[in-house]
Design a protein around this nucleic acid. Structure first.
Length: 103
DNA sequence: GGGGTGACCCAGT
DNA sequence: TACTGGGCCACCC
């Protein structure tokens, strides 16, 4: 079937992240699911790794864990940016109930 | 060629 | 409510 190279997959992820509207966020698992990655939840891990390596050109701060937690080492920066974009925050984590977005 | 790690997720306690 | 353990796959040394 669709023979997508790892690089294609990376571009798809980055594209989807860029398509996330302001004030909304997506979880790693949601991104994987949006790409029809039924490979399991393991894709979420791959998405996280991809974001860590290639997320420097996309609003990575709009991608958080399903618990609304932000990537380690950038919690402050992510929180600041999300807050500036109008993302509903709940303390130090994102209010996924309201910020969760799905294409 | 083999082993360890990770910007995760879910279920149970 | 918060914490712990186990599972999955791709990438690096």
């Amino acid at each position: 079937m669709a023979t997508v190279t790892p690089q294609e997959y990376v571009e798809e992820v980055l594209r989807l992240v860029e398509s996330i509207p302001e004030g909304r966020v997506m979880s790693y698992g949601a991104v994987a699911d949006a790409l029809a990655d039924r490979s399991g939840r393991n894709s979420a891990r791959q998405v996280g790794t991809i974001m860590a390596r290639h997320g420097g050109g996309v609003p990575w701060h709009r991608v958080v864990t399903s618990a609304g937690r932000m990537p380690p080492g950038h919690e402050q920066e992510a929180r600041q940016r999300l807050l500036g974009e109008g993302v509903p925050l709940k303390g130090d984590h994102v209010d996924m109930a309201r910020a969760s977005w799905m294409p």
